[in-house]
Write a protein that binds this DNA or RNA. Structure first.
Lengths: 198, 198
DNA sequence: TACATATGTTAGCGCCTCTAACTTTGGCAA
DNA sequence: TTGCCAAAGTTAGAGGCGCTAACATATGTA
């Protein structure tokens, strides 16, 4: 798999390593990932990454940040061109969450799971808040409000816990392990309705 | 920390290693844990564990299995002596889940998170099902049923996703990272009521 | 009491992360 | 155009880890 390279310099090794890391994180999981593997994939020596990243964790952080950008695009397109605040669009936001979690479980774990130092990274937090704001806006619209009040915050958080939990149960294969038959769309639809009711 | 030992033989090294592993998993997280660290804590050579465990993962599996036993005790005592099926007892079950997750986040991650080969371990699966059965029983009672029908399965699963998601948001510090003010008891109480309604 | 077995040790292989010191190269100033 | 500097590669190696093979010691049973 070691990509041979004509030039001494790579061109854009940083991006190459982020992509290699992303792939490996999906293949082996965030903990099984090794810097050496990423180097082999990118066709450079094992010392090369340290010109671009402080350490292994910083490589994962870059993949995480990258992933949150893709997730933002997913959420944005989930609400695009739809009447705001409807149960349908809120359902679609939930499905976008699940979609991201199941299509990129490794990156999802990095972005929404394990609290490394990620939580202290300003960029990551900002992206998280921006993504959450999309949900808050839709919930406010659902109740015909313009401001984010207590009810909006509460219900948004309830929906978040639900899709977050469902995502992890799915990617950790708890559902199959427990022999449960789950219709994801139905779960999200029914529980969204119940959590927003009254 | 290296516990010196008078005898050549340890006495009960297996248990000693499980306990050392559990502690390290809490201190450093399941991925940062190292067999060497556990050996130092138990005061044995780094080759000793392999008389009791096949590999590193098996040590973690033992900690996981152990943890599920404690979790079972927690759930059992949460329902003990209370009228079955009430919102209160179901709320208490949810709180027990959160309690376990937040008091033993490392073990919680092992038991309810990352799908290693754990999902294929018969004992782990059996303990998981036994714990889930406690919830199913209470939900059935809530609806005045004796059998576990579709509605019971659906609502139990909804509650599971909720407390599971809340647990991860808590231990991964997403709530503080997003500057949210959450009253855990209230979240569980309100959402339990909503998810069980109608 | 002797010995088989369980359970420990030491030595060491191969892999990993990360650093120090060296090399190549592209871009810019003279 | 050329010469030099900084950026971005390389090799070598220290120190740690997981795990195995070979050896050592204690324990329980014939």
């Amino acid at each position: 798999m070691t990509a041979k390279r004509a030039n001494y310099h790579h061109g854009d090794l940083r991006a190459g390593l982020v992509e290699a890391t992303r792939q490996l994180v999906e293949e082996k999981g965030p903990d099984r990932f090794s810097v050496s593997d990423a180097c082999r994939a990118a066709g450079v020596s094992t010392a090369a990454p340290y010109r671009h990243f402080g350490d292994r964790d910083e490589m994962l952080l870059a993949v995480c940040s990258d992933g949150m950008e893709r997730f933002h695009a997913l959420m944005t397109s989930a609400v695009a061109g739809k009447p705001p605040g409807t149960l349908e669009v809120i359902h679609d936001l939930g499905m976008a969450y699940i979609e991201f979690a199941t299509s990129e479980p490794g990156v999802f774990r990095l972005s929404f799971g394990i609290a490394r130092e990620h939580e202290k990274d300003a960029e990551i937090i900002e992206r998280g808040k921006r993504n959450y704001a999309i949900l808050l806006t839709q919930i406010a619209a659902h109740y015909g409000k313009t401001a984010i009040d207590e009810q909006v915050l509460d219900r948004a958080f309830a929906l978040w816990t639900m899709v977050h939990g469902l995502s992890f149960l799915l990617i950790d294969e708890k559902i199959t392990a427990m022999d449960l038959q789950i219709d994801i769309e139905a779960v999200i639809r029914d529980n969204t309705r119940r959590l927003l009711a009254e």
